[in-house]
């Protein structure tokens, strides 16, 4: 978890424009030692652009980004020695074997000859590829490739790891194992910045930054986001033809938002205990005989949908 030592990543008012299009619009946040920071947002929100700037692949149009205390725009090479990066496209060499790929990246990252055998063994073990060291990477299944790419990215023991949608196109079992590896790294003190659009994955992060249209919409622990971002309490209402009740519910006193979730309605109210009986009565009055309701804990998806739809100005939910 985050400790009190200085931040590993500090982003301050970062702006990136591609021609007339503004991909990042004044983003600021910090990542502490050993912290896993998740970037959540719809496609095209600017997650990859942000990561690429932090890796020194793109230059910021305005603002500042410090990685490991170094200005990325000023000395990208010094930054690159301290980071590992895994892009959303699988990017090891398919025509090289497992070990050859690792040896190559080890050499490029400057892992010393003496340390190499140990690091290779570590990466191969981590990827679960022991015994298949000489297999061509092109012949591996997705989950293995992905863990191998992670292994290649941390051969040189980087203090900071950037993962750009690392689990897209990987089966759920492999994703779970991948996240176990991430947590192990974080416990060793590696700061990890990971982008994803899987809600369940976001729950694994220590903190989540929600990005939409280049702006930071919310920032906090998963719990904080779920509890506070909605600005109210959540009720789940069920019943036959419940969809017909959306309009009358939205007009009811104390109701702030109504959204369809599967075959239930999630209704955001100021106080759940106070409003539930009135709403159930309203359902019965609308001809929905078997109307049921209860208070639920909001999921991240609730927050996400709510925040993205509301286009709220950036709010710092937690301190």
């Amino acid at each position: 978890m985050a400790d009190s030592s200085p931040m590993q990543i500090v982003v301050d008012g970062l702006v990136k424009r591609f021609g007339a299009f503004t991909a990042l619009d004044g983003i600021s946040f910090g990542v502490a030692h050993g912290e896993i920071m998740g970037f959540l947002g719809p496609n095209g929100a600017g997650k990859s652009t942000l990561i690429r700037i932090l890796c020194g692949l793109l230059r910021p149009s305005a603002g500042r980004a410090l990685v490991a205390g170094i200005d990325v725009a000023g000395d990208p090479e010094a930054v690159r020695r301290r980071i590992g990066y895994m892009s959303q496209k699988f990017s090891l060499y398919g025509d090289l074997s497992v070990v050859e790929n690792l040896r190559f990246f080890g050499g490029i990252y400057g892992v010393s000859e003496a340390e190499m055998p140990e690091r290779l063994r570590f990466a191969v073990d981590m990827a679960g590829l022991t015994g298949r060291e000489d297999a061509l990477v092109a012949t591996l299944a997705g989950g293995w490739k992905q863990r191998l790419a992670l292994g290649a990215a941390i051969l040189h023991r980087p203090a900071i790891l950037f993962l750009d949608e690392p689990t897209s196109g990987v089966d759920p079992g492999s994703r779970r194992r991948f996240w176990n590896l991430i947590h192990a790294l974080s416990e060793e003190g590696v700061s990890i910045l990971v982008s994803t659009h899987y809600m369940d994955e976001a729950e694994y992060c220590h903190r989540i930054a929600l990005i939409n249209r280049g702006r930071l919409v919310a920032l906090g622990t998963p719990l904080e986001l779920k509890q506070h971002s909605l600005g109210g309490e959540l009720l789940a209402l069920e019943g036959e033809r419940i969809g017909e009740a959306i309009a009358p519910l939205a007009r009811a006193p104390g109701v702030r938002d109504v959204a369809m979730f599967g075959n239930a309605l999630h209704v955001l109210v100021d106080q759940a205990a106070l409003r539930l009986p009135a709403l159930l009565a309203l359902l019965a009055g609308s001809g929905i005989a078997d109307g049921r309701g209860r208070r639920i804990d909001p999921s991240l998806e609730d927050s996400f949908v709510h925040l993205v739809a509301a286009k709220l100005p950036p709010t710092e939910v937690a301190s």
């Binding site: 690159r80 020695r81 990017s91 090891l92 990246f105 490029i108 990252y109």
Partner: peptide
Amino acid sequence: ERGTMELLISTPVQ
């Protein structure tokens, strides 16, 4: 075209 370049650039290689 194979996408390996992005990774190469992110390394300290000169």
